[in-house]
């Protein structure tokens, strides 16, 4: 049971999704009716200067509303009042999509939250001498720009297979309001 008395400023709710595939984007195109081929056809996306298909702008938005639907147990504890997001960064196949909402204010039965949807894009794995052991789609197709590097969005971490390079970027910032029943 989620109650307003249990919620405090700074609380964070979160979900993660790592299943963005070409097949899923084709299914989304069919279900949403947005059949622009830059979301489903690599050749056309490349001709449009995108280096490969990109997810529909509102595809990732669904994970924001799902975050609140799950938190509120599909209307048992409250309802979603408002979401307001800005589409800032492209989301692509293979990205890990992390959606977080942090409570910024509680007023009456209403909870105000800041939303941050971040993509984690794997680039490659190198051995200790800097040799590429494995390259991911972003590395192969050149999705990572010089601007990403200049802005410090490209990071590394040690994993069992070597050193993983990845980009961490905020794709969708925004806000939301939910209302609890108790």
């Amino acid at each position: 049971m989620v109650k307003i008395s249990d919620i405090k400023v700074g609380d964070v709710i979160k979900n993660e999704f790592d299943g963005i595939t070409r097949e899923l984007l084709r299914a989304y195109a069919k279900a949403s009716g947005d059949t622009n081929p830059i979301h489903t056809n690599d050749e056309i996306a490349i001709r449009a200067g995108l280096k490969g298909i990109i997810a529909h702008g509102l595809f990732s938005f669904g994970f924001i509303t799902k975050l609140f639907e799950d938190f509120l147990e599909h209307g048992k504890h409250g309802k979603l009042i408002e979401t307001d997001v800005e589409m800032r960064g492209m989301v692509r196949c293979g990205d890990l999509l992390v959606t977080e909402a942090e409570v910024t204010k509680v007023e009456g039965k209403r909870v105000y939250l800041d939303i941050t949807q971040t993509t984690f894009t794997n680039i490659d794995i190198k051995d200790k001498n800097g040799n590429i052991m494995k390259q991911f789609e972003a590395g192969e197709r050149g999705y990572i720009s010089d601007k990403d590097r200049e802005q410090g969005l490209v990071k590394t971490k040690e994993i069992s297979e070597g050193v993983l390079s990845y980009r961490e970027r905020v794709a969708t910032p925004g806000s939301a309001i939910i209302e609890l029943y108790e």
Binding site: G57, L58, K79, I81, E82, D84, V85, M87
Partner: peptide, 10 residues
Amino acid sequence: LHMGQKYNWD
């Protein structure tokens, strides 16, 4: 370009 999206269900 699609820059932003707000939904209000109040």
